[in-house]
Every structure is written in C-alpha cells, then in structure tokens.
Nucleic acid binder design. Structure first.
Lengths: 212, 212
DNA sequence: ATGCCAAGTGCCACTGAGTGCCAGTTTGGT
DNA sequence: ACCAAACTGGCACTCAGTGGCACTTGGCAT
C-alpha cells in the first residue's frame, strides 16, 4: 500500500515503510533496466528486506509492480458498501467513486502510478495481474449488487457489464494519462480525474457504434 | 490448437498430434489432481514430448490449460477482417461472429472446453492468462476499427468499450454453461451459443441499471 | 533415388519466482 | 517483568521457463 507512515502500531508502520521502500526501489529499476532484468533477490537486497518477507508483503512481483494502481481498486473495494448506498445509474456512481478514490491517494502517488501504468502496458505478466485485480473488483460489485437487488432478473449480468465498462474506461483513461508527453514528471492526478470523467461520460454512447 | 489431424504437411500434423495429446492428458489431470499438483515435467513424460518442445508448442502452462477456450478467440482474431466487413452495430457483429466461431469448433471440443472453463474459474493464474488473451482480442479490434473509421473521434474508446462488453458477455455465458449440472458430460455447444446470444442481447440494456 | 538444408527436436544445465519449515525476535497486553 | 501471538530471517527446496548445442528428419531440387 502507498500508506503514509504515522498511523497504527509500531509494527504496522515498520511494515508500511518496508513496503514503501520496496516500491520506491522497484518501479524506477523496472523502468530503467526492464522488468525481468530486475530480480526479486536484488530488490530485497536493496531494500534490506528478506525474500521471505517480500512474499509476505506482496502477492508476487507483479503485485509489487502494480501497487500504486492496485491501491486504487483495493480502496474502492473497501469502500464499496458506502459507495453503493448512493442512488442513480450504477456506472455513474462507480465512475464518481473512482475519481474520488484517486483524489484521496497520498501525495506523490502520481509519480509511481505513471511508472506502474507504463509497466503494465509493456509487460504482459504485469498487465495480466492488473486485469485480475479488476476482475476481483467486478466480483465484489456483482456480489454486493445481487444482495441489494434480490430477485431482479439479470442484475448479475448487468453488474458484470457495467463493471467491464468501468474497467475499460479506467484503462483508457490511465493509458492516455500515462502516454502524455513528459508524464513522468508533470502528470497530475487532476488530469487523470478529468480523463476518467471523460471516459465514463462517453461510455454509454459507445455501445451504439456501428460498422458502415 | 484443437485441430483435427489430416491437413497440412506430415510435420505439422505431428505437431498437432503432440499438442492434442498434451491437452487431452492435461485437462483431466488438472481437474482431478489440481492445477499446480500436475507439473509440466509429468505431462511431458505422459505425452512423450520433451519439455523443450512443450514450450515450443505452448506459451506456458496456462496457455495449455486454456487451449480450447483460447482457440475460439484466436480463430475470431484470424477472421477479424472478414467479420468487420459486415455492417450494423459492432456489438451485434462481434456477438454473431463469436457464436459462429463456437459452432465451427471441431467435434468433441465441448468436453475439454468445459474443463478449461472450470479451471479458469478455480485457478487465478489461468484466469489471468485468459483475460490477457481477451485483451489481445480487444487490441486487434481497436486497431482494425481505428483503421476503418479514421477520424471519427472517440472510435477507439467506443471499440474498447464494446469489446469489454463482448468479453464480459462471453465470460458470463461460459460461466453459466460450465456450471450447469452434469456439464462435464452433457454440455453442448448449442447450449453455449444460446447463452451467448442471450448475454449479448441483454448487454445494451445492462448499462441502464440503477441503484434505488 | 539421392543428397542437401532448414526446421524442428532432445537433452542438460541454469536462472529466478515462490514456498515450507523452523528457530529466533519483537511487541502489545497484563 | 513476563507471556503468548505475531512477525521475521535464513535456508533449502520445487517448479516453470530459457539458452545452447548437437542431432535428426521431412521436404525438396536435382
């Protein structure tokens, strides 16, 4: 997690710092020397964490690489119950919640998030792990929706479709954001939020697209 | 590939037979003894293929596990140019093409496809690989669409969204198909096609879903 | 038929991710 | 100060996947 230190017990702060150190070491290294050229062993050396602990802190190398981006989804999942208490079109609700979560990420988040996004576009293994996290998000939403709208036939499929659109919108926005010139130094979360809103606003009409 | 032998050169038929033997050995073994309990070495032993060749035939263990399902997407991608020559709503065109591809899979396909689908629901690593293949499909469609509809602003996002919906529809259909009681012996591709049509027909309305 | 060549193959050693185990060390509560 | 539970490090291990290289073999031109 990209958690700012200072909260929780001593122990959990130590863990947060170790994680942070690993992410901070890893993402630039991945970018400069290539994802597979950087080994977990080397990273553990650098960050002074044992390999064993590494795998306690992260689900794997891909999870590490995706930490900044995954944190967004994880936070959104954690807030799901609150989010779904709102009313209105599900797609809009999810879109606004996504923007809200991005806005509350800790300062400095964008620097690492850009690297994470690029990596995801470059390295299939990382991309796949990202898709899996989004799939987990979908499952959560589907579960929550079928619980809230019991009996309404087709609610499950609807939830699935809406989540798929939300994920696609998010991916498109992040992709555009990350590929802006000079993004590694100047990309702001404000820009990302704008792109997200754009994608989500355009999505409903997108289904209409026809071949001539 | 789930290719029926008899076509191509002697050499390519040998390869096809080896692949087939591996798939035929692997999927039941994965199902009975668990995905990670079955090692690639053991499979190579059983199918009398060297490990080196295994990795020439498949992109990896996950690719092997997903062969029946992936073949559908690969075939669809191969036919993309023909498919996109049709006119009408993109989502419908893709849906019909998907059904058509399923219908032309070789006989006996469903038996292995069911196993593949279950595995994908059980084993995250397999699921992730499947998502990646779908992502590849999306990229192909997006490429083809932006080439065919140049200048139309937002075509890329639209294509992305439609593909996301198509993939979600496919997943929902396969999921329902695979979990029917007794699917391992009685699931027919006719049933799958019906489910696919259902999902695709219901998808456009799904975006409207609202929270109360 | 023959013989050449590139594509395909088997084997072996190697790397690197990820896990099981277990004995030691914090740390929070009492 | 003490204890149980949570956490840690280190080590050996498994297994997926790759590189390298000598060897076979199917396809083809002659």
């Amino acid at each position: 997690m990209t958690t700012q230190p200072g909260s929780g017990t001593l122990r959990s702060r130590r863990i947060a710092r170790s994680r942070q150190r690993l992410v901070e070491t890893a993402l630039p290294a991945f970018t400069e020397r290539g994802y597979e050229a950087v080994t977990v062993d080397w990273l553990c050396d650098q960050a002074e964490v044992s390999k064993r602990s590494f795998f306690r802190y992260f689900d794997g190398k891909e999870d590490l690489a995706l930490t900044p981006l995954n944190d967004v989804w994880r936070l959104l999942i954690a807030d799901l119950d609150t989010v779904l208490d709102r009313s209105g079109p599900l797609l809009e609700v999810l879109g606004e919640a996504l923007v809200a979560v991005v806005e509350q990420m800790p300062p400095g988040w964008e620097r690492l998030a850009v690297l994470s996004a690029r990596l995801s576009g470059t390295t299939p293994a990382v991309d796949a792990a990202g898709l899996l996290v989004c799939e987990g998000f979908t499952d959560q939403v589907v579960g929550a929706i079928t619980q809230r709208l019991p009996g309404s036939s087709g609610a499950e499929l609807s939830a699935r479709v809406v989540c798929a659109v939300a994920v696609a919108g998010h991916r498109a926005a992040v992709d555009a954001w990350q590929s802006e010139p000079g993004a590694e130094t100047t990309a702001t979360r404000g820009e990302l939020c704008a792109l997200l809103r754009e994608s989500f606003a355009a999505a409903p009409a997108a289904l209409e697209i026809r071949l001539p």
